[in-house]
């Protein structure tokens, strides 16, 4: 719940406690190569970044904190590639960072990821939990809804506009051919879609400050879940990762614009049979 503190009689400050889930993902420019195990990508030379949608989640949390005061904690599950991303998060103004890390957590499926995040977040007394709508790379769009269920929170996903007043939220979501407005109560889980805000870059001062901050590390034992997420406990697994079949060399259509248009229309109708 929101903690309201009234200072003297004129100034009212509401403190918010926010959790943000951030995922470290391969840069979107990465050329994908399949690793020798046939289920992972080759990770050497891959640059890891904050999943772009999580940047909107972080920004929205920062804006709320600016307005109401309070505290933001970022949570990320992953290996060493997470550290830089959490530093970046701290540099943007997030207060605390929790790195959830254990050899057992390799190649987690979405349900296990949501369960682990829930284990780490549940007791924190957060007013809002922010996620990105999708972790790029895995392209699942699942963890936010799963996490909302496991934390027993109402949710609004793929949000492009958010207003919070008192213990109510109003969110605009992008759906097929329309926008819809969702109203609900806090605490809640919100997942961010592009358009929600313009993420800030970390300031030099922020980067310096972030270097001195400590990143809390929690393993399976610390979360009280030892053995629960081991590979043999998972209910779905990737058995193979392949590259899509290459497209055959395309046909270039020569000539003057008029001829090109004519040939193209004909090919679309007679050869490709798509119009």
């Amino acid at each position: 719940m929101l903690v309201k503190i009234t200072l003297r009689t004129v100034l009212e400050v509401t403190l918010v406690k926010i959790a943000v889930c951030v995922k470290s993902v391969p840069d979107t420019e990465t050329k994908i190569r399949i690793a020798a195990d046939n289920v992972n990508i080759e990770r050497s030379d891959v640059r890891f970044i904050i999943s772009p949608y999580d940047e909107f989640a972080i920004e929205e949390a920062l804006k709320l904190k600016e307005k109401h005061g309070g505290e933001i904690t970022a949570f990320s599950i992953g290996g060493d590639e997470v550290v830089e991303v959490l530093r970046d998060t701290l540099a943007r103004g997030v207060d605390n960072a929790v790195h959830i890390k254990d050899a057992e957590f390799d190649n987690l499926d979405t349900l296990s990821t949501a369960k682990l995040l829930a284990a780490a977040i549940a007791s924190g007394g957060f007013d809002a939990v922010f996620c990105g709508q999708q972790g790029v790379g895995g392209d699942n769009n699942q963890v936010p809804s799963m996490l909302a269920e496991l934390l027993n929170l109402p949710q609004a996903t793929a949000v492009v506009k958010l207003e919070i007043e008192g213990s109510k939220f109003k969110a605009e979501r992008e759906i097929e051919g329309a926008h819809e407005i969702v109203e609900g109560s806090l605490p809640a889980l919100i997942s961010a879609q592009k358009g929600l805000n313009e993420p800030r870059y970390p300031s030099i001062k922020g980067v310096m400050a972030a270097r001195r901050k400590e990143i809390a590390v929690k393993d399976a034992a610390a979360l009280g879940v030892a053995g629960q997420f081991a590979a043999d406990k998972r209910k779905v697994r990737c058995v193979e990762l392949t590259l899509p079949p290459p497209r055959p060399q395309g046909k270039m259509i020569e000539g003057e614009p008029e001829e090109q248009a004519k040939t193209l229309a004909k090919l679309l109708r007679e050869e490709a049979k798509v119009i």
């Binding site: 979405t110 349900l111 769009n141 699942q142 809804s145 996903t157 979501r173 209910k235 779905v236």
Partner: peptide, 23 residues
Amino acid sequence: NTSMARDLIPRVAARLDSPCVSD
């Protein structure tokens, strides 16, 4: 795999402790 499904399906999967593959 629509915006409604992306919102709904994983929530029910988690409720029933079941896996989900999307898209």
